[in-house]
Design a protein around this nucleic acid. Structure first.
Lengths: 151, 151
DNA sequence: AATCAATAGTTACGCTTGTAACTAATATCG
DNA sequence: CGATATTAGTTACAAGCGTAACTATTGATT
């Protein structure tokens, strides 16, 4: 017996739609209030979260962004004086990127908003379903670790 | 006590990364083997799944795509002779879109690949985690129904 | 009937994106 | 040491995208 294909049950479609919806309201915040693009917000988050300086390649690996995205995001953050570059003395191909104090301040404000939003999502989905979603995502993340090949 | 913000635990980030990963291998198939874009594949799937003719607006609502995306996807599928248009006699603003037999054939081939891929994902994640993921996604879908406002 | 509003779908425009080519620096290996 | 390969990061280009403006048609209001 052949089941009819149901787009509504197809995991790539379901995951993509959920991701778009969940990203929407938070993206509105960092776009409207801080004029940040998504790659810029991710770069800020990666740097702020690590608490140290990172190279562009490290940022890309940590947040799974393509290097051209990282390059443009770094440029944007640098223009706003939220990030500064320092070249590596031993190997001048590397640039060590770090948040300025203004950048750290923005990071703290945005992570506070992010925490609020996470709480809002929790109450929107309910604790049990949020648990289930998180468990399922861990499984996907495990699969990514086993198979993911960047570019 | 203030928790440090963890990007790795932030739901929008986790969902987005999972969605990208899961979409990747299947997208490679319809792109390489059928030269389809993602909006084209989704349009094909919506029409094939419904088994009837639909208007562009219906396709957009069903697969949550913007009308310009649908318009371009319809044009692409029409060029490949996988879809034909028929104007509504009573209200000439409407176009009734339906797959040609060649389009239906492509749809059957692609849905067979999709079913294989879904099975592969199931074995990759394991039944229990797939269940959990699905449960969590249902919760998000419920939230979308309550809040989603297209454009 | 005439005007104005609403709807289906397309197109023009500017912005973002990824691919591939590029520069610059370092590593490797004969 | 010199040629080649590799790596970090940037840039040029073309394709994809959403917003907004547009055409065409129908509905609503007076």
């Amino acid at each position: 017996m052949t089941e009819a294909f149901e787009l509504e049950a197809f995991l790539p479609y379901r995951l993509n739609r959920a991701a778009e919806f969940v990203a929407l309201r938070f993206a509105a915040q960092y776009k409207a209030r801080y004029q940040l693009t998504r790659p810029e917000w991710r770069t800020l988050a990666a740097l702020g979260n690590s608490g140290r300086s990172m190279t562009a390649t490290e940022i890309g690996a940590h947040s799974s962004m393509h290097k051209t995205k990282v390059s443009r995001a770094v440029f944007g953050l640098e223009q706003r004086r939220w990030l500064k570059r320092e070249e590596d003395g031993r190997d001048r191909r590397f640039e060590h990127l770090a948040l300025t104090s203004a950048g750290q301040q923005t990071y703290r404000e945005l992570t506070a908003l992010a925490a609020d939003y996470q709480a809002e999502l929790l109450s929107m989905l309910g604790a049990a379903d949020m648990e289930a979603l998180s468990k399922g995502l861990f499984a996907v993340e495990r699969a990514i670790k086993n198979r993911w090949r960047p570019e």
